[in-house]
Structures are given as structure tokens and as C-alpha cells.
Design a binder for these strands. Structure first.
Lengths: 126, 126
DNA sequence: CTAACTGCAAACGTTTTGCAACTTT
DNA sequence: AAAGTTGCAAAACGTTTGCAGTTAG
């Protein structure tokens, strides 16, 4: 899987891939550090951050911004949207049939779209 | 304007309000620190951050998240969306007639919507 | 007089970086 | 040997906080 995307499969990268790419996940870098550390390999924080960036660059993960707090890495790289609950720090998918974005605005001269990010922030019901 | 919203108008708050609330702006906290410092008053970083949060809480500004880098404060508090160009660090409005979000997904049990954030990230045209 | 606000500097949490050591090839 | 990868600790970044002093009503 890594080789297919041109990512040299070192043992650390494989550990991270096993944790993230086998099932749908929404993990922060720190969660990956914890999870990978919990079993087999110790992977350094720096390497986790490098690897996640590398996976994003090679289309294995999608980066999801929710604010300044943290970044999520989503193993589902197809276009879809998210709920974010700052209370619990949990990110969840929005079913694609439930919302859609209609229309594509004229882009500023000399630019193209890098990413479309729709995040619905949640709060406890009043 | 401040009093209307129940915000006690101290001199620092007035300085910041003059900078942000008179015309449409998309400023980061650091830009506000610089701009306010450039003229009359020296307002401390802490006070700028406190004041911006206060203005958001009282509906004078809208907070726009674009990632981990920084937060923007938008003097247009009505529902609308944004382009973000990481290259230039500039945030711009998307005309409301150009995109819309259709449908409102079922929310997770016990939650309601705090904010709907649609940000289109730009990159230089290839 | 009191409650609220300010400013400094120190703390924070997440992410990046410099660089020497270690794998690969 | 060259190219790429790793890990540590330190730095960077934007933001928040503790607290003593100040201001406003």
C-alpha cells in the first residue's frame, strides 16, 4: 500500500499505517503517538508528525482542520464533511447524502482549489 | 455600539473597535496588535486577545478558523463563507450567491450547531 | 468601594526544526 | 559513499493564564 504510493515502507511508517489505514479513523497526531507507543514500536513524536505529513502528501490520509487546537488525520480521503465537538474533541463524518455544497464560486485570479473544508461545530444542546 | 452589546467601553476596547468594526475586516489577533500599536494606544497582546474573545462572545465579531496557524476575526458576523490562501495568509469572503450549503444533517444526540464553517483553501494555479 | 479590566511575563499545547546517528541502496 | 530516515531535545508559533496594579462606575 505504501509502495504503491511511492512511500518507502520503513518500520515506523508501517506501524503508523497499521494503526490508521486499515479502518476508518479520525486521529490527531498525539493520539497516533499514544496508540503506536502503546504497542510494539516506540515511534518518536517527530517521526509521527513527519510520517503523517508524508502520508497526506501521498494521498494516503486527508488532513482536517478544526481550529487552532489540533489537526485531524482522516483515513477516508474522499470528499466528505465533518462534525466537530470541541467538548469531547471528537471528529465524526457527515453522511454525504445529508449535506451538499452547491455552486463553485469564481476563484481569485491565479488560484485553484486546494481543499474544500466544511466543518459543523457542535455544542451541548441547551 | 459597545454599550449596546453590554461591553464596557474602555479605551483599549475602543481602539480595537475603531480598527475592526467600522469597515469589513478579516484580521488576526497579531494584526490587530500591530495596527493598534502603530497609532495612539499601546494595547498589550493579552488585552487584544481578551478583547477579541469578548467581542466574539458579544456578537460583535465572528471567529473564523482556517487551521492551526491562526484565527481570523471577521467584522461581518452574518452567515457567509471564505476563501483562505495560506500562501498570502489572506482570508476573503465568498459571495453568498455563489455557494450554498444544502441540507442539515441529523445532529448527534444531545448536540446543537455552534457554527457552520466552510473554508475553501486556495493554492497557486498550476 | 468594588468589580472589572489591563499588562507583563511566564506557561501552554501543538507542531517544526537542527543535527547527529542510523538505515537503507 | 550517497540518499533518505529517525530521534532527541530545543525552538517556534499562536494563544492563554496568574497575578499585581489600574481604572471605571
Amino acid at each position: 500500500m505504501l509502495r504503491e504510493r511511492g512511500v518507502a515502507p520503513t518500520s515506523q511508517r508501517v506501524s503508523i499505517a497499521l494503526e490508521m489505514l486499515l479502518e476508518p479513523t479520525h486521529l490527531t497526531a498525539e493520539e497516533v503517538v499514544r496508540r503506536v507507543g502503546r504497542q510494539d514500536a516506540h515511534v518518536s513524536r517527530a517521526t509521527v508528525y513527519n510520517t503523517l505529513r508524508c502520508f497526506v502528501d501521498h494521498g494516503l490520509l486527508r488532513l482536517v482542520n478544526v481550529g487552532t487546537e489540533r489537526v485531524f488525520y482522516d483515513s477516508n480521503t474522499s470528499a466528505h464533511h465533518h462534525f466537530y465537538d470541541p467538548q469531547s474533541g471528537r471528529l465524526t463524518d457527515i453522511d454525504d447524502s445529508e449535506v451538499s455544497i452547491v455552486g463553485m464560486p469564481r476563484l481569485p485570479e491565479g488560484h485553484e482549489v486546494e481543499a474544500v473544508e466544511l466543518v459543523i461545530r457542535l455544542k451541548p444542546a441547551s
